[in-house]
Design a protein around this nucleic acid. Sequence first.
RNA 1: GGACAGAUGGCAGAGCGGUUGAAUGCACCGGUCUUGAAAACCGGCAUGGGUUUAUAGCCCAUCCAGGGUUCGAAUCCCUGUCUGUCCGCCA
Length: 427
Amino acid sequence: MFDLKAIRENPSDFDAAMARRGLEAQSHDILTLDEKRRAVQTALQTLQQERNEKSKEIGKVKAAGGDAQETMDAVSAIKDKMTALEDQDRDLGEELKTILSSLPNIMKDDVPDGADENDNVEIRTWGEPKNRFGANDCPEHYDIGEKLGMMDFETAAKLSGSRFVLLSSQIARLERAIAQFMLDTQTEKNGYTECSPPLLVSTDVMYGTGQLPKFQDDQFETTDGRWLVPTSEVVLTNIVREEIVEAESLPRRYTAFTPCFRKEAGSAGRDTRGMLRQHQFYKVEMVSITHPDESDAEHERMLKCAEGVLEALEIPYRTVVLCTGDTGFGARKTFDIEAWMPGQNAYREISSCSTCGDFQARRMNARFKAKGEKKTDFVHTLNGSGLAVGRTLIAVMENYYDPADGGVVIPDVLKPYMGGIEKIVKA
RNA sequence: GGACAGAUGGCAGAGCGGUUGAAUGCACCGGUCUUGAAAACCGGCAUGGGUUUAUAGCCCAUCCAGGGUUCGAAUCCCUGUCUGUCCGCCA
């Protein structure tokens, strides 16, 4: 959501920002509606003032035992005029909200221009992109997992349809170990507060982080009007919804390990094999609520927190800045971390760290106030994967695949979570 | 799921349909007093919007949300949401 005053003062800046998103100029339509609405409001308020004054008079006259019928009739007449204006005010307000809530966030100046993921800009790489045991034609994770007998897509399809998986035995445990390790890292090492949040949320909450109204088709809605979270960013960010928090309590850092549910409506045919793109997957999420002055530094910090997980797992990766054409709806700037996947011989996205500025905060009405200060302002919100658990499982399986026996070696940092297992092999 | 009770400013808590945007206490901020602090005393202290050069003034809205009754609603009526208590069911 946007500051109408800012658009009013600088319509061409707003249009330029939307142009970077590939959208037509919006300010003219917005400002026309805004002007109409303010005119209606001014007229309405004048009538309200008149009504209030006359009603008070009636009170006085009646208290003195007089007859106020004439004034009462006059107020009735005012009321009739007000109804039409009230309707107009409401309609114009809704129209305005419809437009504003469907427009994407304004991107930061340093986001590179570009059309799609091919124009993203690499900022660093870490590690040697190759399987650590020298496998030349490393199989993909589903081949490794199916040969081990611990990754079953057919049974999952029987249970739930496509884009689901049934993990079992030590691969199931490995997934859990990865999640535990990530959660411990984000809490103990990086200072995020662990949360175990609701996974079904209200429409307002989905609106607050920007999933609604525009991306309804990607979401699972329940029969009683709730929504399955597509990421715990939604819940963690909305913790401060409708709140005025003390500036001294910022930054607030939250993390959660939760399932994520997505329809993947727009990606039919993409990544159909394996568990890269599923309707349900686990993710450890990081969310930071910051003072506006601190969000840039927090963004860099969050990126390091995510990268640190891959470094601890010794999985090669590269980090990119998303270009304008690839940056998500709610973000002002996004870093993607792509893990090396030997089976695909490619880097694949495993984390996305975004700063949203005040975009979500405005939608949520989440503000802060300095102690003793009168003025409130919107907080900044950031979110990042720390990391996607399913994709990390893939990365571990392919990077730690041992061609000698088709097994998967357990990374050192995960060993404490694996109950003494050093390597997963076929039973 | 059933029955009852409730929802008021940062918190607690008053409030007869008519100068109530809202008593009072606490918290907070400023001041007096004090070497300093505490206490005491004095003053201030909601949010959003319109108008405006203005974070000045004026005006409007807001006492959970949305409708309604009325010349006038925190106060009356309806619906919804949430909270509490009891009953039922249950991991």
